[in-house]
Design a protein around this nucleic acid. Structure first.
Lengths: 225, 225
DNA sequence: TCAAAAGTGTTAAGTTTACACCCATGA
DNA sequence: TCATGGGTGTAAACTTAACACTTTTGA
């Protein structure tokens, strides 16, 4: 029997993850130094193939978990890359995702086993295939999204100082922000709450630790930073 | 020989088009009443399958051209939909695109042959599979994009009145705009140029016709409406 | 002559930007 | 005691929002 679908070709469907972390005041990406073909020895985004029993979103979550040990990480689709010869080995259609994670929580043994490394986003090596474009698109998307939804907190520990928060947004927007204006804006955001804890690691005086209250955000979901 | 790719399943990769037109002050979508299985008789987005020699972008352009006779239409990727059972017939991973076209230019014979119809976006029938979600995401995306890039002009004829332009943006943003504020803003946008032509069809008095000057926009690409 | 759409400015409110000094503490 | 990062307020510039009447002309 001939169905509607026959005659059409089938493709491998891959996923690639642009995994963001934030440390030492800078954004970093978790990149693989490939110890497998094709493009062995070169840098690439972590990725994998969609399996028969999973969606692309599932596959991205699985690959991230395999690499970092983390589940329930904030991920979002960036876009799909399907140029005929984008992968010189075989035809692969790939869905790119970005992930935002707290860089203190990943499983460093797993990461080492995969030969993955955190690389400062200002010093990225050239990446294979169209992975550079994927990264560019992901950065662009995060920039936009960060100004309309509080996704940045995914990159921070549960408790953070205002200086950390400001550095993070400076890194995301790739521009300097005025300290007083920044703090004034934060103080108007009700779901960024000051705790009574103090961080003494960053300065002699100590800095107040804040937390993001997700419940409060859901009740009144407006955002602008 | 076993390659890196073997062991992984392959999938049909489809594309679906959310085709926007603007007429009588309202947004419309070009929908198919399916005369083929699966889901014969129901409404769906126009779509097709990616072929071996084309990217998903190519496929979307091809499907749009087959349906409307138009090439060089503004299209953008919305996202990829890959739930395992999204298409009950077979596993299909589908990339959604939106298209913005001037509703006066399509080939109406072709459209009829495909059993496609322009439907007011306020009165959409239920669509098959996950096509409703695709439409929602596309509307959302256009709303955002329209405020940072002059994509709206793709929906208008080359010459248009300010009333038409305002109605269009009211339809996109789904909210009323103040006429005087709107016109003031437009008058500050240098690449929206008044012509010496008059449209007499919309009113007795006649309204000045404007055009979008793409060259001027490219030189100074800022936008806000 | 009148209905229907085109066209036109001002003011108040709100938002954004620029900017500099004192504080607390550990080394 | 001093170097380091933490913390604080105000005024000017700019942007946004609200608002109502006159013009033109074909039917």
């Amino acid at each position: 029997m001939t169905t509607y679908y026959s005659n059409h070709p089938k493709f491998y469907v891959g996923i690639d993850c642009i995994i963001f972390g934030f440390s030492e005041g800078e954004l970093h990406l978790l990149l693989l130094k490939r110890n497998f073909e094709p493009a062995k020895g070169e840098w690439s985004l972590p990725g994998g193939f969609v399996q028969a029993d999973e969606s692309a979103d599932d596959a991205a979550g699985r690959v991230l978990a395999e690499l970092t040990g983390l589940t329930n990480v904030y991920m979002e689709q960036v876009g799909t890359f399907s140029e005929v010869h984008r992968d010189p080995g075989e035809r692969v259609v790939s869905v790119a995702y970005y992930a935002l994670l707290n860089i203190n929580e990943y499983d460093s043994e797993l990461v080492q086993q995969h030969n993955a490394h955190w690389v400062n986003i200002g010093q990225l090596p050239p990446l294979i295939f169209d992975h550079d474009r994927m990264v560019q698109q992901a950065r662009q998307l995060i920039k936009q999204k960060a100004s309309s939804e509080p996704i940045g907190f995914n990159l921070l520990p549960k408790l953070f100082t205002l200086t950390q928060l400001q550095c993070l947004y400076e890194a995301i927007y790739d521009e300097a922000l005025d300290k007083r204006n920044f703090r004034k804006r934060v103080s108007e955001i009700r779901y960024v709450e000051k705790t009574d804890k103090i961080d003494k690691s960053g300065s002699k005086r100590g800095a107040a630790l804040y937390k993001f209250n997700e419940r409060a955000y859901r009740k009144e979901p407006k955002f602008k930073l």
